[in-house]
Structure formats: C-alpha cells, structure tokens
Computed example of a mutant assay.
Amino acid sequence: MKTLKLLLTIMVFSSARTTLAQTRPGIKVGLNNSNISNTTLDTKSGIYIGAFVDIPISDYYTLQPELLYSNQGGKSNSDQYGDVNINYISIGLPNKFYVSSNKGFHFILGLGLDINFENNFVNLTNFNGDDEISPVDVSVFGGIGYEFDFGLILEARYKQGTVSVDFFGEDDLYEEAGSNLNGVFQIGAAYKFKL
C-alpha cells in the first residue's frame, strides 16, 4: 500500500512539474465595442489591455487566468448627457478548448469579475458624489481564436454582464424597463512569451 501511495505521489508531482514548465505568461490588447441594455445609449468603442498566464492542462485544453483594464459604457445621443465611460479591472478565467492537439483554432468559454474603479457618470449628473453605477459586474463570455506556433494569438469574444449597471433615478437614460446590463464585443491580439 505504501508503494502505491509513493507511486501516486511521484506521478502527481511529475505532472504538476511538467504543467508548470509549460506555463507561459503573455500580454494582450484589443478593441471593445460596448453598450448597456435598455438605455438610450448607442454602442461605444474602447480598449482593453492586460496580461495573462497560459496553463496547459492537456493537448486540447488550456486554462488562461487574466487581468485586464477594460473601457466600457455607451455613447450618448442626447445633449443632456455625455458618453458614459466605465473603467473596469477585469479578472477573467477563460477556458480554451483546442480543435487539434497542435493548438491553432480554439473555442473560449469563461467567467469574469469586473471591478468598476472609475466612471464619469457622477460627473455628468453632478449627483453630490454618490455612486451612480454598480461597483462590480460578473460576466460570462465566449468566443473563438487562433494561436500561431510562434506565440501570436488572435481572438474575438462576446462578454455579457449579469449585474445591472443601474442608473439610479435617471429616467432619461432608460429606453425600456429591465436591467441595464453591459454587453461587449471584443477583438484583439495576444502574445505568449517563451520562457
């Protein structure tokens, strides 16, 4: 029995060591095309930029924790309000599923936590400094991508917020009843460094 436990322990450490040896950090940058549902706001362009760690679990599956800055919101078509800019720190956990074992084309599914560290909606309304926009958002996202052998990755994603942005009492921004949810189409590039 002791021999079996020792053998299993060696296998687990060997597997963990191999996975850590294949782990690669990277950077990413891209464009956001964002909007907030059930408002009079139009789609707004912004950017995202950040870093990630690529952790291969198998030939067909990789976990890719990431930390990004993401500029989202909506473009105003009203003289009363300007554009709504919300700056988030996004902590994401993408799961990448490869079509073949030599990487290349892949599908992305994941969850994220977006922390609102700055927005201009309070300034637009002069509402005595009270927070007008939710401090956090929980998002789900999915997309497709292609990874080249030399480390370049091209990806397109759609990210859907699940927590209402809530423009408290600002009836002029509402288009119809319902939650004001972030919706963001992202397209961009990433690069994995070789260690």
Rank of each mutant, 00 (worst) to 15 (best):
L124M: 15
K2N: 14
E66L: 01
K159C: 04
R17C: 15
D130W: 08
Y61D: 03
S179P: 11
N120D: 09
K103H: 08
G151R: 02
L6I: 10
V12S: 09
Q160N: 09
H106C: 02
L20I: 15
P94F: 11
T125R: 13
G145Y: 03
E66K: 05
G188D: 12
K28Q: 15
S134E: 09
G46I: 01
E66W: 00
D172E: 11
M1N: 10
K96T: 01
D79M: 12
I57E: 05
T9E: 15
K5M: 10
H106G: 02
V99L: 12
F185H: 00
D83A: 13
P65H: 01
K159P: 00
I91A: 11
A177F: 05
Y81E: 02
N120K: 13
G110Y: 09
Y61T: 05
K5R: 11
V165D: 00
D54C: 12
F52T: 01
S164Y: 00
L68F: 04
V163W: 00
I10R: 13
V53M: 05
Y174F: 12
L113T: 07
S90N: 03
Y69D: 05
L173K: 08
I108M: 02
L31C: 11
F52G: 04
E66M: 06
Y146E: 10
I57S: 07
K2G: 15
I27L: 15
T62M: 10
Y146Q: 09
F167P: 02
N38K: 06
T39H: 03
M1S: 13
I133F: 01
S164V: 01
Q160L: 06
I89T: 14
N182R: 11
K44L: 15
E155Y: 07
D59I: 00
F121Q: 06
L4W: 13
S164I: 00
N33L: 14
G110V: 01
Q160M: 13
M1P: 07
G188M: 11
F127N: 10
N126D: 14
E132M: 12
G161Y: 00
L7T: 05
E175F: 12
S58E: 04
D79T: 03
S34W: 01
T3N: 11
L41V: 07
G112Q: 02
N116V: 04
T162P: 01
P135T: 03
Q80L: 14
D171N: 14
K192D: 13
P65M: 00
G46R: 00
L67N: 06
V184W: 00
F148H: 07
